[in-house]
């Protein structure tokens, strides 16, 4: 039985990774699960310089999951390279760094550094607000997405470049195409969906930031639909995520066209979700006489 996948040049022992921002740099969850079993660890969104993050409350539970407005709190790339990377390297798993920025220059400078680090890939988070353009997310237009992908590509010469797409757009296939045209090796989707929760007693939004990103099982059908649509348009592989809680959910994404998947908020409900998903995929392969997990990618049979 083969569970190994080659995701844009990153050879992973299985298609299961953990999603950016839900798993820190792996230290906390390493107390609960064996990181060696994971296909890859995708780190917390990391910037060129440390970022304070948003004031609390940053989290709010809603039907089907939660809203968050962490505000990309992170210690900066220098700290990561010095303290977290060497520790992560002691595990037999792939390391993908989620990269963020507030300006194109910041992204480029960060990726110049990432290109020199001992990591397996970079996931470019294009949901970050662009401070030069009224804080609209970078990845909301074709031109913006292609431009930033192209600029980063120039300096990230030696690592696979995965562009993480925001679902808060009119047509995600256009944006996915922009990433491909800009030189990305893969795309990942979906990031959180912008939401808002109001406390009717105080008449104020629950989150201090007013709005936040919706994640969890409630967004799964949207993620699956988007992965399917993108798979019909682009020729680079897709990392599928959004609401995956078990192997059944993961397989749905793979049938829709994802080569690999990420477990995000479901880590919070059960820290063992990723490991259980790996075992569940193996069980599914046994039950359905599947020799190679690659044989199910994109094999949904549309009505």
């Amino acid at each position: 039985m083969n569970t190994e996948v080659n995701f844009c040049g990153i050879k992973m022992k299985n298609p299961v990774t953990v999603a950016s921002g839900t798993f820190g740099y792996g230290r906390e969850y390493s107390q609960y699960i064996d990181l060696n079993q994971l296909g890859a660890v995708i780190t917390k969104g990391t910037f060129l310089k440390p970022k304070k993050g948003n004031p609390p409350p940053r989290i709010c539970e809603v039907p089907g999951g939660m809203l968050n407005s962490i505000g990309l709190q992170n210690p900066g790339i220098e700290y990561f390279a010095k303290y977290d990377l060497p520790w992560l390297k002691s595990f037999d798993t792939k390391i993908i760094v989620n990269a963020g920025g507030s300006t194109i220059e910041e992204y480029v400078e960060l990726c110049r550094i990432l290109n020199t680090l001992d990591i397996d890939g970079v996931e470019l988070n294009l949901s970050c607000p662009n401070v030069c353009e009224g804080c609209m997310a970078f990845g909301t237009t074709y031109d913006g997405t292609k431009k930033i992908t192209g600029e980063v590509r120039k300096v990230l010469k030696d690592k696979p470049l995965i562009v993480k797409l925001t679902p808060n757009v009119t047509n995600i296939t256009t944006i996915a195409k922009a990433a491909e045209d800009g030189g990305a090796d893969a795309v990942s989707a979906i990031n959180t969906i912008l939401g808002m929760k109001i406390d009717i007693n105080t008449r104020k939004p629950v989150l201090a930031n007013n709005t936040g990103g919706y994640s969890g099982p409630g967004i799964r059908t949207i993620g699956v639909r988007m992965v399917y649509q993108m798979s019909q348009v682009i020729n680079i592989p897709i990392l599928g995520l959004g609401g995956i809680c078990n192997a059944d959910d993961a397989i749905e994404y793979m049938l829709a066209g994802a080569t690999a998947i990420s477990i995000g908020s479901a880590n919070f409900t059960d820290p063992e979700t990723s490991i259980k998903t790996i075992h569940g995929i193996e069980q599914y392969m046994k039950n359905h006489n599947i020799e190679d997990i690659n044989s199910i990618i994109g094999k949904v049979q549309m009505n």
């Binding site: 917390k44 304070k52 993050g53 004031p55 908020s265």
Partner: peptide, 24 residues
């Protein structure tokens, strides 16, 4: 308000006073 409860999601922020202001 907590997400993970173990320090991974950075959800349960509180202002900790530092020499030059604060950090979460």
């Amino acid at each position: 308000r907590m997400g993970c409860g173990i320090g991974a999601c950075l959800g349960c922020a509180v202002k900790v006073i530092t020499e030059n202001g604060f950090r979460y």
